[in-house]
């Protein structure tokens, strides 16, 4: 049994690893950090940029070093949601929000899912253990599934 579990565990990191760079860039709102990264490449001499460079590098290091595998899985999912949400929003801005209920349910499904996933991430984080005396990771995941189901039900109902 243990063997069987080990093999998929080897494969799972593939997804987070592949998505890792994009995770750090997108987890903060995408508009904020991407220009900064490009700026850093252009003019590294300036003090300001230097500190930014440091901040970003620190963040990346911290992330890579101290994030458990499963949390990275969550991050990957969140990144995916951010991309999906951004695409929907972009489409709304470009093409108008004609069936407004469709836009709302589509977009809020993504946002809601993102928030729920973030909550799951917070609750399963070892560092936050003290904040949640009554929530075990299993419980957190069960909650997460229940809430997500409610969310999906509402969204599908609302989009008609």
């Amino acid at each position: 049994m243990a063997q069987k579990h080990r093999i998929p565990r080897e494969t799972t990191p593939q997804t987070p690893q592949a998505a890792k760079t994009s995770t750090t860039a997108t987890a903060p709102t995408a508009a904020q950090t991407t220009p900064i990264v490009s700026k850093q490449a252009a003019a590294a001499a300036k003090q300001q940029i230097n500190s930014w460079d440091q901040v970003v590098r620190n963040l990346t290091n911290y992330y890579v070093d101290s994030t458990p595998q499963r949390t990275k899985l969550i991050d990957a999912f969140m990144a995916f949601l951010v991309v999906v949400g951004a695409l929907q929003f972009l489409y709304c801005v470009l093409a108008g929000n004609y069936p407004f209920n469709a836009f709302l349910s589509g977009f809020s499904a993504t946002v809601g899912q993102f928030v729920l996933t973030a909550s799951l991430r917070i609750q399963t984080n070892e560092a936050n253990k003290s904040d949640f005396p009554s929530v075990s990771p299993e419980r957190a995941f069960a909650d997460f599934v229940a809430c997500s189901l409610i969310l999906h039900f509402f969204c599908v109902n609302f989009i008609n």
Partner: peptide
């Protein structure tokens, strides 16, 4: 606190969607 984050965001995301299911309320929440 993270507790605040979890409870508030969960409430808001689900609660707003739930409220929008009522025809009379509709899009008002946004």
């Amino acid at each position: 606190s993270t507790r605040l984050y979890v409870s508030y965001t969960t409430w808001y995301a689900l609660g707003t969607l739930a409220s929008m299911q009522i025809p009379f309320v509709g899009f008002l929440p946004v």
